[in-house]
């Protein structure tokens, strides 16, 4: 698999560490349902068969966490963007 790192260009996926679902958001501190929200954030996953967004860390490159859109059935790689940025064409 080849990942088009937004900073380094197209690289073999072995340069990266993939770690987790990028569709879940850490709940804001202090909200009343914090425990349930935290359980959802840490444990529950839609686990789609198809397009998905994941966090990849370019460990042997720029050390940036990036979002990779990837199809979990075909392994096709779609859009890629940096952590902290909105998805291309989407509002934050």
């Amino acid at each position: 698999m080849r990942i088009p790192c937004p900073f380094c260009g197209l690289r073999g996926h072995e340069e990266f560490v993939v770690d987790g679902d990028a569709t879940v958001t850490r709940p804001a501190p202090g909200r009343p349902d914090a425990p349930t929200a935290a359980v959802r954030f840490v444990y529950l996953r839609d686990n789609p068969a198809g397009w998905h967004r994941e966090w990849w860390f370019h460990a042997f490159g720029c050390e940036r966490w990036i979002v990779v859109e990837r199809d979990t059935v075909t392994h096709a790689v779609g859009r890629v963007w940096s952590a902290g940025d909105p998805a291309p064409g989407e509002d934050r």
Binding site: W55, F57, R64, W65, S82, A83, G84
Partner: peptide
């Protein structure tokens, strides 16, 4: 180190 980068870049980029 990877976790710290995750915290900085993903959780609290601001």
């Amino acid at each position: 180190y990877r976790h710290l980068q995750y915290c900085r870049q993903v959780l609290w980029p601001d």
